[in-house]
C-alpha cells in the first residue's frame, strides 16, 4: 500500500461487493488477486452479472484464477491503450446501477478512472484496490508529456529531458502525478536519483 501523504494523492481501499445490477472489473497484473480475494466474500451468483477485463503482467499469471470465477464475460487485453476503445464503449453504454471495480497498479487505476470520469461516473462511487508496483505515471508540467512507470526521485522527463521532482500532487483528470523541474533555478545542481517508487 502507498503511504498517505497529501490530500490530492489518491487513497485506495479494499474491493468489496457492492449492490448493483452489473459489475465491471478492470485489473492488471497482481490486481487479479484483489478480485479473487473479494470473490471469497461475495454472495453466491455475484459474478453472473460481472465482466472482468484483465491486462496480465509480464509474467502472464492469474488468468486462470479469474476465469475460474466464471464471470458473464472475461476479456484479456494486451495493454491499457489497446483496451481503451472497448472500455469507452462499455462505459458509454452502461446503465445506471453499473458498479466499477479497479485493482492493480496506480497507473491502471488512474487511467481507468479517468475514462470513467469522462463518461460521468462519480469517482467516489468507484471501488479501488492498489496491488503491485508503486511506479508512478507522471506528467511533466513544462512540456505536458506523460512518462509511464516512474520509479525514481527525481526522474527524467522522457520527452523534454528536464530533471523533475515527482510530486505527490495528483490529477484524476490527467491520471498522473505532477513533475516539476527540480533544478530550474540552477541547472548545475543535480540531486542524486533514488529508486523509491517500486
Amino acid at each position: 500500500m502507498a503511504a498517505k501523504s497529501i490530500i490530492s494523492r489518491p487513497v485506495y481501499g479494499t474491493l468489496s461487493p457492492q449492490p448493483g445490477k452489473q459489475h465491471l472489473f478492470i485489473a492488471d497484473a497482481e490486481g487479479a488477486l484483489a478480485i479473487a480475494e473479494m470473490a471469497e466474500r461475495a454472495p453466491p451468483g455475484f459474478f453472473d452479472d460481472a465482466e472482468i477485463v484483465f491486462i496480465p503482467g509480464p509474467d502472464g499469471k492469474h488468468i486462470a484464477a479469474l476465469e475460474a470465477l466464471k464471470p458473464a464475460q472475461f476479456h484479456q487485453a494486451p495493454s491499457f491503450a489497446s483496451l481503451l476503445p472497448r472500455l469507452r464503449q462499455t462505459l458509454a453504454n452502461a446503465h445506471m446501477g453499473v458498479r466499477l471495480y479497479l485493482s492493480g497498479t496506480e497507473g491502471l487505476i488512474g487511467q481507468a478512472m479517468q475514462v470513467a470520469l469522462e463518461t460521468g461516473i462519480d469517482h467516489t462511487s468507484i471501488q479501488t484496490e492498489h496491488r503491485g508496483s508503486l511506479a508512478r505515471r507522471m506528467q511533466c508540467v513544462h512540456c505536458k508529456g506523460i512518462t509511464e512507470n516512474v520509479t525514481t526521485q527525481p526522474a527524467t522527463c522522457a520527452h523534454c529531458g528536464l530533471l523533475l521532482l515527482v510530486r505527490d500532487h495528483y490529477s484524476r483528470r490527467i491520471a498522473a502525478f505532477q513533475g516539476v523541474c527540480i533544478n530550474a533555478e540552477d541547472r548545475s545542481e543535480i540531486p542524486p536519483m533514488e529508486e523509491i517508487f517500486r
Binding site: I7, L117, Q139, S171, R172
Partner: peptide, 22 residues
C-alpha cells in the same frame, strides 16, 4: 500553480501542496 493540472479538483485537492495550513 497550474490551472491545467488543477482543473476539476475540489477545494482541498487543489490546495493540497500548501504546507502547514491543512
Amino acid at each position: 500553480w497550474s490551472l491545467d493540472f488543477d482543473i476539476g479538483m475540489n477545494f482541498f485537492e487543489w490546495h493540497a501542496p500548501v504546507p502547514l495550513a491543512h
